Lab assay of single mutants.
Amino acid sequence: GPGLTDLFKTEKAAVKKMAKAIMADPSKADDVYQKWADKGYTLTQLSDFLKSKTRGKYDRVYNGYMTYR
């Protein structure tokens, strides 16, 4: 089956995709945050998933999740 690194890459891609969806349409934020909360994502995990070469690119999404939880 898929190894943990593959799983991480898949999760990371999914999280980034959802983060971009929030940035494009902030009204989606609560739905996405709820999904992440259901998956039990911690802020540390989210921070790892949303690492970007562009500093602060996903800060709004991260901060939103922090206040959501």
Score class of each variant (00 low, 15 high):
Val61Asn: 00
Gln34Ile: 05
Leu50Gln: 00
Lys35Asp: 11
Trp36Tyr: 01
Gln34Val: 06
Thr54Lys: 14
Ser27His: 06
Ser52Ala: 05
Thr5Ser: 11
Val61Pro: 02
Thr10Gln: 14
Trp36His: 00
Arg69Leu: 15
Trp36Cys: 00
Gln45Val: 07
Met23Cys: 05
Ala24Phe: 09
Ala19Glu: 00
Lys12Met: 14
Pro26Lys: 05
Leu46Gln: 00
Asp30Cys: 14
Lys39Ser: 08
Gly40Pro: 05
Asp30Ala: 12
Leu43Ser: 05
Ser27Gly: 08
Ser47Gln: 12
Pro26Ser: 08
Ala14Phe: 10
Gly3Ala: 12
Ser52Phe: 05
Asp59Phe: 09
Trp36Asp: 00
Ala29Gln: 06
Thr42Asp: 05
Trp36Glu: 01
Lys39His: 08
Ala19Gln: 01
Ala37Thr: 09
Lys57Gly: 04
Gly3Pro: 12
Leu46Thr: 01
Gln45His: 08
Val61Phe: 02
Lys28Tyr: 07
Asp38Ile: 09
Tyr41Ile: 14
Asp6Asn: 08
Arg69Tyr: 11
Ala37Cys: 11
Lys51Trp: 09
Lys53Val: 06
Ala21Ser: 12
Asp6Val: 10
Lys39Pro: 01
Leu43Trp: 04
Leu50Cys: 02
Phe49Lys: 01
Lys9Arg: 08
Met18Asp: 14
Pro26Met: 07
Ala21Arg: 05
Asp48Phe: 09
Gln45Phe: 04
Ala13Lys: 15
Val61Ile: 11
Ser27Leu: 10
Ala19Phe: 02
Thr67Cys: 14
Tyr33Pro: 00
Asp25Pro: 00
Leu43Pro: 07
Leu4Val: 11
Lys28Cys: 14
Thr67Arg: 15
Leu50Lys: 01
Gly56His: 10
Leu50Phe: 04
Lys53Thr: 11
Phe49Pro: 00
Val32Lys: 02
Val61Thr: 02
Val61Tyr: 02
Asp59Leu: 12
Thr5Pro: 09
Asp48His: 15
Leu43Arg: 03
Thr44His: 10
Lys53Trp: 05
Glu11Phe: 03
Arg60His: 10
Trp36Met: 02
Thr54Asp: 14
Gly64Ser: 03
Asp59Glu: 12
Phe8Gln: 09
Ala37Met: 15
Arg69Cys: 14
Val15Trp: 02
Pro26Ile: 07
Gly3Val: 10
Ser47Phe: 09
Ala37Gln: 08
Leu50Ile: 03
Arg69Ser: 07
Ile22Met: 09
Gly56Ile: 04
